[in-house]
Design a protein around this nucleic acid. Structure first.
Lengths: 179, 179
DNA sequence: ATTGCCACGGAATTTAATACGGCCATTATG
DNA sequence: CATAATGGCCGTATTAAATTCCGTGGCAAT
């Protein structure tokens, strides 16, 4: 990512660190990424082009990874949320992990520090489908035990959105219980 | 939500159920909500206005709850992800829950069917901050024990996005490990 | 068979995104 | 200490996309 100027190779400037205005911008875009640059600038105290410039920089630097629509699970008929705790003693990681991550029911996969377990967040149509998924997981090489927690009700779910504001205003689409 | 026509009150039409094209649209928008209606229509086989009409309907019906930017946790200096499993025997629910949901570190709160525990997903700057949060949680009335799993590495994290396609193409912004 | 109802497509209009040039403040440099 | 350079901002102009309007055709109910 170098660019040539005057026959001399110069590095691209180091990404500046996030300031207060950037945090405000992130807070707005987490809540609603469809706002126009005019309104965004209005809310954070900038002109539309300046706000646009900031957002472009945040995208380039990777602070904004992308923009996604938030789907109501009920609308697509997968209302059963569960956390699955699987013991993976001696798991060879990548290959089996890849298989599991292809299951459409699996939304998250985490490994745990100082432990041999993994934590999955899964969503299925009903308990029968959940049982089927658990059976498939149990048959996966490397998995020695599974334990699942079926979520009864969810009061808060604001994914992948750490501390962009000091006191967190819950995003509009997260403000009511999901189930 | 009724509207008057010819002096007669009519209910708004019942929301049609999601068809194959709607699922395709949802799949695209989950992956990247910044696509133009021209490209969206191109991908699902519709004209731009038709695609626009579909998306408007999906928003009205609530299937699309909103659109959010995905932020890199490292960029905002909260790289430590953990799951906290708290025993809440005799919890009175709403009031204490409200307090906990105000903590900016807490991203999700779930109650578990057939159990007296709750599952939290939290994100902090470092282990010291996590310990502080756990202490605060332990002091909360109704909490009798806490257990936390610090996430070492995350291989997949596609939040709140159940089964909009058959074989799930991992969204672009989720395709590489988060930590 | 006929009528009414949606959903789609094409064209036109409105609105927003993006590019450009000049200004000011802050910072490096002689 | 003065001066040049840099970077970020604003106002304006241009380009592109969103949105509206209206005619058409398929489908279903009557």
């Amino acid at each position: 990512m170098d660019e040539e100027t005057d026959g001399i190779l110069r590095n691209t400037p180091a990404p500046r660190d996030i300031d207060a205005i950037d945090r405000k911008i992130l807070g707005v875009l987490v809540d609603d990424a469809t706002v126009s640059y005019a309104e965004l600038g209005d809310r954070v105290g900038l002109s539309p082009p300046a706000a646009h410039e900031r957002v472009k920089r945040l995208r380039r630097s990777g602070a904004i990874r992308g923009t996604m629509a938030i789907i109501d699970p009920k609308a697509v008929k997968k209302p059963l949320l569960a956390f699955v705790h699987i013991d993976t003693r001696g798991w060879g990681k990548t290959p089996e992990l890849m298989a599991v991550s292809q299951y459409p029911e699996v939304e998250e996969i985490h490994t745990v520090a100082g432990d041999t377990c993994m934590l999955l967040k899964v969503r299925t149509e009903d308990t029968r489908a959940l049982e089927g998924l658990l059976a498939r997981l149990y048959e996966t090489p490397g998995v020695t035990s599974t334990r699942s927690y079926v979520v009864l009700s969810t009061y808060l779910e604001r994914p992948v959105q750490p501390g962009v504001t000091e006191t967190w205003p819950t995003p509009n689409h997260m403000s009511k219980p999901l189930y």
